[in-house]
Design a protein around this nucleic acid. Structure first.
Lengths: 121, 121
DNA sequence: TCAAATAGGGATAAATTTATCCCCTATTGC
DNA sequence: GCAATAGGGGATAAATTTATCCCTATTTGA
């Protein structure tokens, strides 16, 4: 992974959660793992827009942040399973709150996002 | 602002909320505006780590996404006030949920973030 | 007359994150 | 021997986001 040059400021709870949740696919990874899609190939199928490489990198970060665990079975072909830690599980309601807000305002959000996109192009 | 080349995928509520909330200072801006710090100079004082330039850019994005309004008073020296729209207000409980989770797990979070940081450097 | 306060923006550099490309391991079944 | 399956990683390019630097304008107060 890229090594940061500037250390982030961690003043408040918002900084802290941002630090572990920022990353294009992280929230979705947590969500799908929670739903029971534990193997890398499954996750890849659920998130086809991301390359395998990026998913691996973000999974590693989630693991470093102790939100998930990685279990490698010594079999061939290889088998790997990710699971939420207890700590990771506490994030699920928060992620649900984010998703619910997005769902509840879907129409309006699509509208404003679309308009802004057209303005700049 | 930078003009995106690749259009984001907006499949679900999580994508949609991500689109309006991503941005290093946006969440904090919404929070402080909600707390009554409505003028640019006040916001700058509350968020000294950000430059004025970046705050302006992110405020503009929040405005384009209809989460805040900007009122310019035709006086000298200039006076500007930002306020949450009704739509923006609906985000406050969600932001509170994020901040609360971060606060509740502050110690653990500082630990994992610190360790990961040391590993890579 | 000069500094401070208020609000703002263009151009460009630096940092950071994602994406692309290509390669590796080992076994099972043709 | 070759493809498929399952999981992974290095090197590098491209995209995107933030930061830096410097400039504009007006009025009040010292």
């Amino acid at each position: 992974m890229y090594a940061r040059k500037i250390l982030p400021n961690l003043n408040c709870g918002l900084d802290l959660i941002g630090e572990v949740l920022y990353g294009k696919w992280k929230i979705r990874l947590l969500w799908f793992i929670n739903e029971g899609h534990q193997r890398p190939s499954e996750l890849q199928r659920k998130i086809p827009d991301a390359t395998r490489r990026v998913l691996n990198i973000q999974l590693k970060e989630l693991e470093d942040h102790e939100l998930i665990t990685k279990k490698i079975y010594p079999v061939v072909p290889p088998k790997v399973e990710y699971r939420l830690t207890e700590f990771g599980q506490t994030l699920i309601p928060v992620i649900a709150a984010l998703g619910n807000w997005g769902d509840a305002h879907e129409e309006q959000l699509r509208g404003v996002i679309k308009r802004r996109f057209e303005k700049q192009s």
